[in-house]
């Protein structure tokens, strides 16, 4: 029987919603699904994990070393419990991307990244070339490592389960690893970008970081997350974690509003699976209009204040 291990992603406080989608993907591979949790403090995560109906066992590695994410530490834990499993899954978040290929390398497994569809137990679909093509790939390996593009999967049900928690010893591999210095995390009261129902994104057309704030009022009224194009991030209008696209985040909200964004393929790669797309751009030839359900050809400096007042 197929045994699947899912890496629980979290911030030591709550489980990442990405993990709920990864579990959903795991359910399509089989029903023997376990979780691996590396954390500095399990107490606040425990109740949440107890709601996951499809999880059988949770391998718990609890130690201060997991206060920050050092890939080497987490990979040692994955290796320690790897014997039993056929599949190892994480999301294609920056954590999943950091950790899983390292694990795959040590296991001599060729990983399959950014899976958007599970065709069967050995066949998967994934975007290539910035989403310009979709590849169907087949693995000949007996053990496989997948990262899951979470926007392509629903979330698992979390209405009560009875997973068994197994406390594991911390592996004491003396691997040669970096040390944590500091982090600067973006604090926001808004919904998280990759799981928000509505995303309002600004591009180079916003001109500067003061103008970028024109999106705030609209985002607040719509309870939306704010995103940005690479050009807007590079120019310092928005922090790096706002970037949507091939190298940024993938989003697929019910509504994506692109303001002053031209629609380069690298940007489309991260948002073209949104249900409804709105584009506001003064250039009627802008490629973003090719993917937009509703296009408004207008100067954003006029359109945005009016839109805010009419919501």
């Amino acid at each position: 029987m197929t045994k699947i291990l899912v890496l629980a992603e979290h911030d030591n406080n709550s489980l990442s919603s990405a993990t709920l989608s990864v579990i959903k993907a795991a359910e399509m591979l089989g029903d023997d699904i376990d979780l691996i949790l590396t954390t500095s403090n399990i107490s606040s995560l425990e109740t949440e994990i107890l709601t996951l109906s499809s999880i059988n066992k949770v391998h718990v590695f609890e130690d201060k070393i997991f206060e920050n994410e050092i890939a080497e530490n987490i990979v040692d834990c994955l290796i320690a419990v790897s014997d039993d499993y056929d599949f190892f899954l994480a999301s294609s978040s920056t954590s999943g991307k950091n950790i899983m290929p390292r694990f795959a390398g040590l296991m001599d497994i060729q990983q399959i990244s950014e899976v958007i569809e599970i065709v069967d137990g050995s066949t998967f679909k994934k975007p290539i070339y910035a989403g310009a093509c979709i590849a169907t790939v087949k693995t000949e390996q007996s053990k496989n490592v997948l990262t899951i593009r979470t926007t392509s999967f629903d979330k698992t049900t979390a209405d009560g389960g009875s997973p068994e928690f197994i406390k594991q010893d911390i592996p004491t591999k003396n691997s040669n690893k970096p040390t944590f210095v500091k982090n600067e995390l973006t604090v926001s009261d808004r919904p998280e970008l990759t799981s928000a129902d509505i995303v309002v994104s600004g591009g180079r057309g916003m001109q500067n970081s003061d103008n970028f704030k024109l999106l705030d009022g609209i985002a607040t009224k719509l309870n939306a997350a704010i995103g940005a194009s690479r050009a807007a991030v590079d120019s310092g209008f928005a922090p790096n974690d706002y970037q949507v696209g091939q190298t940024g985040k993938s989003v697929a909200p019910n509504l994506y509003v692109a303001v002053g964004i031209s629609g380069a393929i690298q940007h489309l790669a991260g948002m073209k699976d949104s249900k409804t797309i709105v584009a506001i751009n003064k250039d009627e030839e802008a490629p973003i209009f090719k993917v937009a359900d509703y296009g408004l050809v207008a100067d954003l400096f006029e359109a945005l204040p009016e839109l805010e007042s009419k919501l």
Binding site: E69, T94, T179, F180, N183, E184, D241
Partner: peptide, 11 residues
């Protein structure tokens, strides 16, 4: 660059 913002490591 990480999903939550920025992180600094030394090695």
């Amino acid at each position: 660059e990480i999903d939550g913002g920025l992180e600094t490591l030394s090695s």
